[in-house]
Write a protein that binds this DNA or RNA. Structure first.
Lengths: 230, 230
DNA sequence: CACGTGACTGACCAATTGGTCAGGCTTGTG
DNA sequence: CACAAGCCTGACCAATTGGTCAGTCACGTG
């Protein structure tokens, strides 16, 4: 899932002039990057709040503090824009959720995975939410390669779990659904942020919540796999 | 959360008796009810696919096989329509997830709750998805009483769990987060239906999946609570 | 049959939308 | 300074939107 900058893939022909490494104008490139960054951030927020169809380019422009035509200058159309945003998100996750190996200790791997995922839900709820909405709506804007990539990713991790089970390092549970369980229970804290804060009677998440929730989920899930914890 | 029919709350003044003859004496209210039902169902589907802002009344009308003006005849505006749809969903859940008591057996209660919730995710993914989208987007269309109702509901259940813990019937886990865990892990199968089917390489869920997943979640979660299972 | 009542809808409107483009602006170079 | 090259945007357009309403239709009653 390595992707180069968006410019070459998503922006109009205005990008090609500038994207070929040899820039005549360094300073110009900075502004360009900043603008793209602002647009992507604004777009992400708007897409989360209003969905794809419900989001207007004008709203994105307003949030980014740029004229509408400028959005169309950097991103040919709405479709290109959401593709860029989603790719951004997948890259982020890919970066964080590293590889695991059979030789690792199941308890440590599971704990680290859960902790990282919980923290992501707290520090980056936006991407998580947008991704969730995409899937709920049928993943119409996630390109095929992203969809199949997810399958590959799950299968890979599941294989390691299976070997652990064979080696008697954890009890016999369905590895694929174990991944779903971890994914859903952690992601929940991002997606249902609003509801959870209401129920917990809070204004926003605190640092201690991350620790408390991570610990809770580690306890239940790891013990549920028949592994001593802590 | 008992709510009477939508007609009195959401439709315009055209709410009383009516008559529309289709061959012989067709009970008047029947057509009315059927229409409302069709509209609510169509609206739910459209809202899931396109979000609130992204859904057009025309699209709902087309799906329901009715003229657009007819939608506005039954539901004054788009807001009234989504309120009716959401209320419908909350009623459905309220009906299914009954009461629990301290005197009940933790294992049975947890197992029954998980099973019911999984089955709901499989048989009624639409409502679950729409509800999730609402929460993700900040619950802008869930009225206050619905939001506070959820808090009350969770607190109530949590209290019972706490007593079980005091009685030594289950190990010491955070009751509120236990509810979140059950909610998220089961709901996941509705919301992420698309992704999960892709990963499992299936076209649609099978009856056996319900059983398999219920069993998996029961095992992990109930054992995670320090209770023997099965 | 005539008439009133309520159920329904075609046709319309003001506002908003994604997207376009001609032309102004800034920059580095000769 | 003059000029070219690329960066940017105000103003615009065709299409779509939620919502309205005057008028049509079917039925029950007297």
């Amino acid at each position: 899932m390595t992707t180069d900058t968006f410019s070459s893939k998503y922006t109009g022909e205005a990008a090609t002039n500038n994207a070929n490494g040899v820039d005549k104008q360094q300073k110009a490139g900075k502004i360009r990057e900043k603008s793209i960054e602002h647009i992507l951030s604004a777009a992400q927020q708007e897409f989360v709040i209003n969905g794809f169809k419900g989001t207007t380019i004008q709203a994105i422009a307003d949030r980014a503090g740029l004229p509408k035509a400028n959005i169309h200058y950097y991103f040919k159309n709405k479709d290109n824009l959401i593709h860029a945003v989603l790719e951004n998100i997948l890259d982020l996750w890919d970066e964080v959720l590293g590889d695991i190996s059979v030789d690792d200790n199941p308890k440590d791997v599971l704990a680290h995975f859960i902790r990282t995922k919980v923290r992501m839900s707290f520090t980056h709820p936006g991407p998580s939410k947008l991704f969730a909405m995409e899937i709920i709506q049928g993943a119409q804007h996630l390109k095929d390669y992203a969809r199949t990539y997810l399958r590959k990713w799950v299968r890979e991790k599941a294989k390691v779990f299976e070997q652990w089970i064979e080696q008697g390092k954890m009890s016999k549970v369905d590895p694929v659904h174990l991944i779903f369980l971890i994914w859903s229970s952690t992601q929940h804290y991002a997606d249902f942020e609003t509801q959870i804060l209401t129920i917990m009677n809070r204004g926003e998440y605190e640092e201690e919540d991350v620790e408390h929730i991570s610990e809770f989920l580690c306890t239940i899930i790891i013990r549920g796999c028949g592994i001593e914890y802590p």
